[in-house]
Write a protein that binds this DNA or RNA. Structure first.
Lengths: 342, 342
DNA sequence: GTGAAAGCGCTAACAA
DNA sequence: TTGTTAGCGCTTTCAC
């Protein structure tokens, strides 16, 4: 018996089946309110029985939209990543689905060129908009895209560009660290140290300011209680040792889980117990709630990536439907994931 | 001064500029060998000067191909994931780029339905093929896609379905563990324990068989040296304690980094040093080279995800260009990432 | 409320 | 080697 290859149904197929014109079927799909209830039902039945699904390419060609959001994946840096990208992509894909959008992944041929890849996708109209995530390098893509009036939304504030007027979503690192300060201070800690990144990191300084500000609000001193350096375990370890020999803090707040791992190591090496009781334990709090934090039972500030994704897509959607609206930023507050390290 | 909106160039624009027909421009792009060198040059110049890029939607409509590969992102399981997905998506996006393909992310509306999402993308011809990665659940999507003759490639062997005839790429866990056995045995360890997953896990048993087989090949015993259980830190810890009180192994090979984390904890609690010297240290080896492994300096078996991605895309490409070719599987060998835990 | 006409931008097939 | 014709499947526009 020869396999009967059923031709893929098109609008015409459905129209013939339902005894209406092609256009009516299209309307049934895109503007059902235009049809008489009875007609709609008949068309619907034909669609169902034929298993018709509109052809994306044809629709894209006609509507000049692809319903695709471009996301550039930058090179995977071994060890340095806190593994947030995984969670973020998930969240983004999910958020997109709710708007009938999809995420298209792309990579740069030349990773050192922050603009590489965008132009090709844009020129071929393969995507409608971009989500830009590389906020650590000062986001040169943002300005380029802005200048070309490409619809995009950034995950990350335009720290270094006060004239930037594109929509963005970011996580309030300062508020997250303030949360951590409150947490350990509420537990009775008074000498609360900060271990962070170099001064030239906007994000690092933002997080640090949460510590400084909230400590002062709680009437606690911060002098001689902080260190700045590379985002490495080793620096975390060394900084912790140095601080312990000096001001002897009973709590360490860190700009990253990586640094916190170093603190944990230092405490272990010195035989100091980790935990929330300031009487005989030292509390440690990280940032990002990464896999290592979960594994080592480290309290950590967790970025609300799911919310971030939803907001990004919402802004994108707004931007695509009402391009004239004023752009704005959205700042989301992280939460504290409490674990045994505090 | 009114902003002059330059119309987006099309084939016709370029053709007019170059003084040739639309088709010739198309050929210059897709079959340049058909053109006379001089014509090609002229067309090329017109393309460059106008900044022309072919419209994807139009091309897709005409060629009935989208150059898009669908990848379903399954729900992010907190803590359980070893964070490989991040690296894998990177590698896949990169491999796709080299073939002019792109990855389209999608998620299921109903996560419990392993087929959800595939049909819609397929019906609308939004993607040309799929990469299926959910091999842990026995891969029900594979059979469904196979039955519908949907082009797809699986990351993971069809363990439970000997009749499966789709192309796949997988990592040889058995060989990876054998590597780990050799490593510790070469360093002088003789009592080498295995801590793995429950017996119903194909992957777990495959990895375990690498231990059993290679141990015997090296003339070493395996009895009373293994444990099976949940993939949790806690089980790793408990299993390690139990084994230490019994056969007192000097090396632990684990089916996952998670389990290895537990072993590390147990050793630390007992005051046993970790390292490669069998005289006074216990060696620990994990599997997956996850972030926690990197952070805790744990030796681990590393899956060659970059190669996996390249092979997946190669098979996909083959399958899409010569659909009649016989399908086959590709088994790749992992490597051992040596660190201080061994 | 429904249908007919037109055309989005491209490439396959064929003619010149 | 280049040009012409036709049409992929859809939606916008406008007539009925």
């Amino acid at each position: 018996m020869p396999a009967r290859v059923r031709a893929v149904p098109t609008l015409d197929t459905v129209a013939a089946e339902a005894g209406v014109s092609r256009q009516t079927v299209s309307n049934a799909l895109n503007s059902p309110h235009l049809l008489r209830a009875e007609t709609l039902e008949r068309v619907q039945a034909a669609i169902d029985s034929l298993g018709y699904t509109p052809n994306r390419a044809a629709r894209n060609l006609r509507t000049k939209a692809s319903q695709l959001i471009g996301l550039r994946l930058d090179p995977f840096v071994e060890g340095s990543a806190s593994g947030l990208m995984d969670r973020f992509m998930h969240a983004l894909a999910e958020a997109c689905r709710d708007c009938g959008l999809h995420v298209l992944l792309f990579t740069a041929e030349d990773h050192t060129d922050p603009l590489d890849g965008y132009e090709a996708l844009l020129g071929s109209r393969a995507v409608d908009a971009f989500v830009v995530t590389d906020t650590y390098r000062g986001n040169p893509a943002a300005r380029w895209l802005s200048d070309r009036r490409v619809p995009f939304v950034a995950f990350g504030r335009p720290w270094d560009d006060s004239r930037a007027d594109h929509p963005w979503v970011d996580v309030d690192g300062r508020a997250g660290v303030a949360l951590a300060v409150d947490h350990v201070v509420d537990r009775g800690h008074q000498r609360v140290a900060w271990i962070g990144w170099h001064k030239d990191s906007y994000i690092g300084e933002d997080r640090r300011s949460g510590w400084v500000q909230r400590m002062h609000e709680r009437g606690l001193a911060t002098s001689k209680l902080s260190a700045r350096g590379d985002d490495t375990i080793d620096f975390g370890r060394r900084a912790a040792i140095a601080l312990l020999e000096g001001a002897a803090p009973t709590a360490f707040l860190c700009a990253s889980d990586t640094l916190a791992m170093g603190v944990l190591q230092a405490l272990r090496d010195k035989g100091i117990r980790t935990g929330g009781n300031p009487a005989h334990e030292v509390a440690v709090v990280g940032f990002d709630d990464s896999l290592p934090a979960q594994v080592t039972d480290l309290t950590s500030v967790r970025q609300p990536l799911e919310e971030v994704a939803v907001e990004l897509v919402r802004l994108l959607d707004e931007r695509m439907t009402h391009p004239m609206d004023e752009q704005r930023g959205v700042l989301l507050t992280p939460s504290l994931r409490l674990r045994s390290s505090s």
